[in-house]
Nucleic acid binder design. Sequence first.
DNA 1: ATTGATGCTTGAGATCGTCAAGCAACTCGC
DNA 2: GCGAGTTGCTTGACGATCTCAAGCATCAAT
Lengths: 146, 146
Amino acid sequence: MTGTTSPTPTKAQLLELVAALGTAQWQDFAAAAARHGLTSVQAKLLAQLKGPVPMRGLAALLVCDASNVTGIVDRLEARGLVRREPAPTDRRVKNVVATDEGHEIIRRVRAEMQATHSALDALDEAERTVLYGLLERLRPGLEHRA
Amino acid sequence: MTGTTSPTPTKAQLLELVAALGTAQWQDFAAAAARHGLTSVQAKLLAQLKGPVPMRGLAALLVCDASNVTGIVDRLEARGLVRREPAPTDRRVKNVVATDEGHEIIRRVRAEMQATHSALDALDEAERTVLYGLLERLRPGLEHRA
DNA sequence: ATTGATGCTTGAGATCGTCAAGCAACTCGC
DNA sequence: GCGAGTTGCTTGACGATCTCAAGCATCAAT
C-alpha cells in the first residue's frame, strides 16, 4: 500500500492538513528565531523590512493595532536590528528600516528553518511547480477578507 | 494569461507563499474565534479535544510549557467550555474534556472560516486530491524535528 | 485659521509564554 | 513495605504581546 492513499480527501481533511502544516512551519520559524534571541513576532516584523515601512504599514502587515507595533519596534531598535527614521514627505510618519545586522539575522533565521527546508526537499522540481500553482490558486480566496 | 505563471518557482518563493497562506489561514481562524469571544490559543486548545486529554498532553500538542496550559484551561473552564476530570488510572493526571457547549462553539468556529473555505472552493476535486497528496509528502519532514 | 482626520506614542489591563519552586502521586529497587 | 527518584499539575514572578482609550503632533481642506 503505497500509491492509492487518496480517494479524494474531504474538505475537512484537507483543511486539517493545511492547518497542521501551517502550524508546523510556524513552530519551525519560531524555533529558528528563538535561537537568535528573537520572539516569533519580532522575527516576523523583521521579515517584512525589505525597505523602509511606516509604523502604520507594519500594523497592517501584521494585522494588529498600531500601538502594538510601537513596543515591538522599541525592542528591536534597542537591539540595533532596526532603525526609526523620519519620513521626508510627512513628519508624522516614522519609517522603520532594518539595519545590516537586522537583515543578516533574519537571513539566518530563514536559512535555519531546517524542518521546512527538508520538507520541501521531499519534492522534485515538477512537483514544486504543481504545488506552487495550486497554492497560487488558493491565495486570492485567503488573502482577501476575513 | 492564465496558464503560464510558473516556470519552476524558487524554493524561497515557494517558502514565502506557504508562509503567507499559513498566516492568512491563521488570521481567518483567529477572527472566527474572536467572534465567539475566544482567543486563538483558546480555540486551538479546544480544537484538540475530540476526547479526554491530560494537561501534559495538551502542552505537547500546543508545544508549550505545562504551566501555560493551566491558565488557558482555567479560562475555558470558567466559561463552561471545558471540564477537568480526574483520570481513573493515575490520580496525578487531570483529563480535560470539552463540554457540549465547547464542542458546539469550536464546530462553529471551523464552519465560519470563510476565507479558508472559499479558498478551498477555488479547487475542483481532482486538484484537491493532488494538493492533498503533495502536502502529505511534506508532512514527514515538517512534523518531525525542529 | 479653525476643523477634522491621520500617525505615533503612552498607559491600563488581559492573555500568553517561560522558568523555578512546590506538592501530590506514581515507580522502582530493595 | 518504604524510601529515592520521577512525573503531573499548580503557583508565583516576570517579560512579551495584544487591545482599547487618550493624548500630542502633523497634515488636509475648507
